[in-house]
Amino acid sequence: MILYDFDYERPGTLQEAMSLLRNSGVDARLLAGGTDLLPNMRVQNLKPALLISLGAIAPMPPQAGEDGSIRIDALSRLADLENSDFIRREIPLLAESAHAVGGNQIRQSATLGGNLCQETRCLHLNQEHDYQFAAPCYKRGGDCCYPYPGNKPGSCWSVYMSDTAPALIALGAEVEILGEEGTRSVPAERLFSGNALTPLLIARSEMIRSLIVPAAPAGFGWGYHKSTLRGGLEFAMANMAVTLRLEDDGETCAAARIVVGAVSEGPLRASSAERKLVGKALTAELLSEAADDASDEINPLPHHGFTRNYLRENIRVYLRRTLTAALERASGGII
């Protein structure tokens, strides 16, 4: 049970939902799968006065555009994405990242848009309200930080843990956001502020409507890894998504994207490691060096008991393997 009363509306159309969101005059939130919002309301990290359920609005099936890009409804359930033959064939990286989220029951309820809009997490924030210290921390509107007492005033070092966000950034997806003045579109990587207090650059009157994933070019390969303690039903220690594109010669790297998530206030791109790969023939040594560079560049935030050194090593090792898998896929080794 949620320990305070709130209002609930279940509009039949998206237009009604958006008009409620704008005009309700109270702190309103959209409710999709609820697997992140409701537990956060239970521990009173979030206390919206009105929930606007999107449950009556059916998601549209994924659609291929004329340019080969694929539009995915943000209300698509993660389980439907990971089990969709179309998504598994056309955007396997997205299917894999959706498959990595939580446990089966979570994925049956949770939506792709909701996964992107999840709250940041830290050992203090995740606790029941009863166990919290009397004074709220910066994230809860207070004036202290319990995990990092020396933290600069007003800054929060909680971690954004979406498993699908790194995959969407690596794929170069565009995010369509429905707002007061129609729809605007931003690249997935520009969705994140890098500030854990407000991790997403989306206004409260806006909603993620759909994700547009560009067509995979020739010579495309991908890799995905989520580091976890027990391999299921948990948040990541670190997650990483890699996409590579090879030139027609099948060796030279034409483009690379390396994204590491769950170790910072938002997903991070390892730009210098990407630059190291582009224009060169990809060898095992080069990939290994790129993984080393990325691990240095990322500077992970210690979280949930994992130290910075440990996370650096974790990223170094698994990024090397993820890059290797991406290269094998790009050169036709594994499908």
């Binding site: 409701l38 537990p39 239970r42 359920s53 446990g103 029951q105 979570i106 039903l233």
Partner: peptide
């Protein structure tokens, strides 16, 4: 757990296994 982390409360909702501890009854 009542927070969606253990699965003990799983029920089938239109054939999907979901966690009844983090699903609003009105939904």
């Amino acid at each position: 757990c009542l927070s969606g982390t253990c699965g003990a409360c799983t029920v089938l909702l239109s054939g999907r296994p979901v966690l009844s501890c983090i699903t609003l009854a009105v939904e």
